[in-house]
């Protein structure tokens, strides 16, 4: 069993799916010979050739539009957008066509594609490279939004995304692209979409998070332990549609919840999670649901980006606030 980072796990998932199914295509900017700007598609061009791994003209809108057409024609395109900051060009085709074609044709046509993009801050990237705007996508009925937080999850979730009959936006937390290596089984396995994972069990407080924030939560859980707070960590894995049941089950047990996300607070998924907890588990709560998030500001450039990203200290302060309520 090889030790892989997320980049390598993504690559392995793509390779396995392309070997399994001839209709799987990889397309985007620099995904061919160059192997992608983060090297996630490295080696695929050599193995599968230019008809299955191809560079496109530099237009995210064109990539998305043609990917929809390919999907309608029986292919399973995996389209790469180099950074989430450039994904907005795809929104028209994502919202107006990919997301609703099944519905508007009463199930006759569907769009089984994956739109992959690295997202989030923390790698000292230039302007427009560090946003975390997943909440924009979590209000588009007909699509799924998936975020892995580890190499093993990246493989299992991406393979499920490729096989999913509906369009999937697959957001890869680039801060931890190469941060951790872990054993990734080289056997066939899938991680179901729409199901959260209990990363760590605990009895006092539930942290709900995803992507790079799972690592922050794990770090905090150790520190909280020193303060006699036993934290449970839920990694949502799929942000939309969300596994509400997993969240509610955990909060019913702990009675306290904290959402940690890198995206801005206003209108963020933390609000959706807090509202869901209110609707379904209010009387089990021992304290208000709090949120530790990015700020409601433009993501700062590298010199100041660390102010923006939630860190262990900010999360710990909120835990103390909840515990002392």
């Amino acid at each position: 069993m090889p030790a892989l980072n997320i980049v390598e796990a993504v690559r392995l998932a793509l390779r396995e799916e392309m070997r399994r199914d001839d209709s799987v295509l990889v397309m985007g900017e620099d995904v061919g010979k160059n192997g992608g700007v983060f090297r996630t598609t490295e080696g695929l061009f050599d193995e599968f050739g230019e008809e299955r791994v191809f560079d496109t003209p530099l237009s995210e809108n064109g990539i998305m539009g043609t990917a929809v057409g390919l999907a309608v024609n029986g292919f399973r395109p995996v389209a790469e957008i180099q950074f989430m900051g450039f994904i907005y060009y795809t929104l028209n085709h994502l919202i107006c066509h990919a997301a609703r074609l099944r519905n508007r044709t009463r199930g006759n046509l569907s769009v089984p594609l994956v739109l992959r993009a690295p997202y989030g801050a923390g790698i000292r990237a230039p302007e427009h490279h560090s946003e975390s705007t997943e909440a924009l996508f979590a209000q588009i009925p007909g699509i799924k939004v998936v975020v892995p937080s580890s190499p093993a999850d990246a493989k299992g979730l991406l393979k499920s995304a490729v096989r999913d009959p509906d369009p999937v936006v697959f957001l890869e937390p680039k801060k931890i692209y190469r941060a951790v290596k872990e054993e990734v089984p080289d056997i066939e396995y899938l991680i179901p979409l729409g199901k959260a994972k209990v990363v760590k069990e605990g009895k006092d407080l539930t942290i709900i998070c995803w992507g790079a924030m799972v690592k922050v939560a794990e770090e905090v859980a150790l520190k909280a332990q020193e303060e006699k707070v036993d934290v449970e960590i839920i990694d949502l894995r799929t942000l939309y549609p969300m596994d509400r049941e997993a969240v509610i089950n955990s909060v019913e047990k702990t009675g306290r919840a904290l959402v940690v996300h890198e995206a801005p607070k206003a209108g963020g998924l933390g609000a959706e999670i807090a509202a869901t907890i209110n609707e379904k588990a209010l009387l089990r709560l021992k304290a208000p649901v709090l949120r530790v998030t990015g700020q409601d500001i433009t993501v700062p450039m590298p010199k100041t980006e660390d102010y923006y990203i939630p860190d262990a200290e900010r999360v710990l302060r909120s835990i103390r606030k909840i515990m002392s309520f």
């Binding site: 539009g65 929809v68 024609n73 085709h93």
Partner: peptide
């Protein structure tokens, strides 16, 4: 089906045609 967002059928049709070629 009809596309109401004007012109959006154009790249979709091209992608479909590309699929036929592949």
């Amino acid at each position: 089906p009809f596309t109401v967002p004007v012109g959006s059928q154009i790249p979709i049709g091209v992608g479909h045609a590309l699929g036929a070629k592949l």
